[in-house]
């Protein structure tokens, strides 16, 4: 009988610990499918971060190192510099990448480190129970913005792709979403390109994935998917923010 659907080889058999309706599982799968399709499982080294995806080292069936909060791009820099023939990616959330690890993110991009960054933006700190993130939307209620994010006192959300698009060293930046099938397919294409860029030695690629956190948003999984479309995408427009090779080709 023909197999029409199976678990990617780059995922282990460990059951994911993520909450029902959380899209981490989808993104894990997309990354693993891409690793399978590119045939790089044996050469890939993952850098896990701190947040809900901290235990991704148990899920990705590749060599893994777990980095301190925000430091994944620095750890990935070390891994990649040690052996540039390896494929190195980080998997980070918004608190990790856009708050405590902002310097590491910006400078690894500025150095054009030949690594791939998978950035999960779900507008909240999930693992610690729903605090305000650097990407929490204006007015959004969280445990530490109980009256809604007041931009007059705590400022505005970080738009990571927009920010990094001003960094010369960044090679490829795209914001995608996984709230419906069509967008999941687009997200996979972007992730694949980000890994292919690394294989081709093209430098720093970052894919920002708009994701759900039904548990901490306090909504059903279905509502959470709808909220990405109704609230997140208007603030965080999808699309390619930088692709220096496409720019060169168009010249």
């Amino acid at each position: 009988m023909a197999v029409v659907f199976e678990k990617p080889k780059a995922l282990t058999d460990a059951p994911l610990h993520y909450c029902p309706g959380c899209t981490h599982g989808i993104v894990h799968r997309l990354v693993a499918e891409v690793i399978d399709e590119l045939g790089i499982q044996g050469e890939t080294i993952a850098v896990a971060s701190v947040g809900c995806s901290v235990m991704s080292y148990d899920y990705f069936d590749v060599d893994c190192v777990q980095a301190a909060h925000g430091r994944a791009p620095a750890v990935a820099t070390g891994v990649k510099r040690s052996d540039p023939s390896k494929i190195v990616f980080t998997y980070q959330g918004d608190g990790d990448l856009a708050a405590i690890g902002t310097a590491e993110t910006v400078h690894s991009a500025a150095r054009r480190e030949n690594i791939t960054v998978i950035f999960i933006n779900n507008a909240i700190y999930g693992m610690t129970g729903g605090q305000m993130a650097p990407t929490t939307l204006p007015g959004q209620v969280t445990q530490t913005s109980p009256y809604g994010r007041d931009v007059n006192t705590v400022g505005y959300p970080m738009k990571v792709c927009e920010l990094l698009s001003g960094v010369d060293g960044a090679a490829y930046l795209e914001r995608v979403s996984v709230h419906d099938v069509a967008h999941v397919r687009k997200a996979k294409a972007a992730i694949k390109k980000a890994f292919q860029n690394q294989i081709d030695g093209k430098g720093f690629s970052l894919i920002e994935v708009l994701s759900t956190c039904p548990t901490n948003w306090g909504v059903s999984p279905k509502k959470a998917l709808e909220w990405i479309e109704s609230d997140m995408i208007p603030y965080y427009p999808l699309g390619v923010y930088k692709d220096i090779y496409a720019e060169e080709e168009n010249k």
């Binding site: 620095a74 990935a76 820099t77 070390g78 510099r81 310097a103 590491e104 400078h107």
Partner: peptide, 17 residues
């Protein structure tokens, strides 16, 4: 590195290999 913090984490990266 951009900081001492980043430098020691790059050390972690190489050491892990």
């Amino acid at each position: 590195a951009e900081s001492e913090v980043a430098a020691i984490n790059m050390v972690i990266g190489v050491s892990s290999t």
